[in-house]
Computed example of a mutant assay.
Amino acid sequence: MPGVRSDQPVILGISGSERAGGNTDLALDYAGELVRGRGATFRTVHLRDRRISPCSPCGDCNSRTLPCALPDDMPGIVEEMKRADGIIYAVPVHGFGLAHLMQIFIERAGVGFLRFDRPLANKVGGIIVTGRRYSDASVHNQLVDNLLLNRMILVGSGFPALLRNTTGKPGLNDPEGIDALERMAHRMIDMALLLRKYHADTGEPVLPLDDRNERVERSRSLS
Rank of each mutant, 00 (worst) to 15 (best):
S138T: 10
G177H: 08
A99F: 08
G110P: 07
I127R: 04
C58K: 07
R164P: 03
L148I: 14
L162P: 03
H100V: 12
P119Q: 12
N146A: 12
I178M: 14
G156N: 12
R108M: 08
L162Y: 01
T166N: 13
S157E: 00
Q103C: 04
S53Y: 06
Q142Y: 01
R164Q: 11
G76C: 04
E182M: 01
E182C: 01
V155N: 09
K169M: 07
R164H: 15
N141Q: 13
P71I: 08
L66F: 14
A90H: 07
L70D: 12
E79A: 15
A137M: 12
F96I: 12
R108T: 03
P54M: 09
R151T: 00
R108F: 05
V129M: 07
E79N: 14
F116N: 06
N62D: 05
L181A: 02
C68W: 06
N173V: 09
D85G: 10
I178G: 03
R183N: 13
M152E: 05
R118Y: 14
V45N: 04
L154I: 01
L47R: 01
K82W: 02
D145R: 15
S157V: 04
R132S: 14
S63Q: 15
D60A: 11
V45F: 01
P57Y: 07
G156Q: 10
A90C: 08
N150T: 09
G125L: 05
D49A: 06
R132Q: 14
T167L: 11
G177D: 03
G158M: 01
Y89N: 01
L114N: 12
A90V: 10
P170L: 02
P71M: 07
V45T: 08
G112E: 10
G110Q: 13
G97Q: 10
L101H: 07
C61N: 04
L66Y: 13
A161S: 13
S56Q: 13
K169N: 09
H140E: 10
V144A: 03
P119D: 12
D117M: 00
I88W: 00
L181N: 05
E107G: 02
L114F: 13
D60K: 13
L70W: 03
L149W: 05
P67D: 10
F113Q: 07
R64H: 07
E107A: 01
G168L: 04
G158P: 02
D49V: 00
N141H: 12
G171Y: 01
D136K: 08
I87N: 08
V93T: 14
K123W: 03
H46E: 11
G76H: 11
E182R: 04
V93F: 05
F42Q: 02
A137Q: 13
G110V: 05
I106H: 10
A161D: 03
E80W: 00
N173K: 03
L162T: 02
N62Q: 09
L143H: 05
Y134G: 09
R118M: 15
R108S: 08
L181Q: 03
F159N: 09
E79M: 13
R164D: 00
L98R: 10
I153A: 02
F42V: 04
I153P: 06
T65H: 05
P67R: 10
D49I: 01
P119C: 11
K169G: 02
V78E: 11
M74Y: 06
G156D: 07
I106G: 04
N62K: 12
H140Y: 14
E176I: 09
G158I: 04
T44N: 03
D174Y: 06
L120S: 12
L162V: 07
I153N: 08
I77H: 07
